[in-house]
Amino acid sequence: MHETMVAQSIIEAITAEAQKQQARPIAARISCGQLNPINEEVLNFAFEAIAKGTVCEGTKLTVVEITLKCTCKKCGRTHGFDIYSPACPGCGSTDFDINPDAPLLLEEIEFE
């Protein structure tokens, strides 16, 4: 349930932006990397509980997971990382570097 702390952090960021925009938030989009996944349902559950009575009450969160990519050391092709099938779809090599995982971001807020 680390989603609770993530929800708290999102509420603080949305509240600050809502004050700046003088508007009521209705939705927000979060993105995360594949190695640092956030469950959308659990996040919304925690968010609703904490947001009660704040400007964020009623705001819906969506989570976009950014695929982890790796770069083949042999042919240089970049492809999605899959531990069960690590071979490069281009040349079949299993020698690759994993690219940095996408950070946890509050990408966008939609206001009324």
């Binding site: 960021a13 932006e17 925009q21 946890l104 509050l106 990408e107 966008e108 807020i109 206001f111 009324e112």
Partner: peptide
């Protein structure tokens, strides 16, 4: 109205 932020979450931690 949509506002693009791209703000890192858990930045306090």
């Amino acid at each position: 109205m949509k506002v693009a932020l791209n703000k890192k979450i858990l930045d306090k931690n």
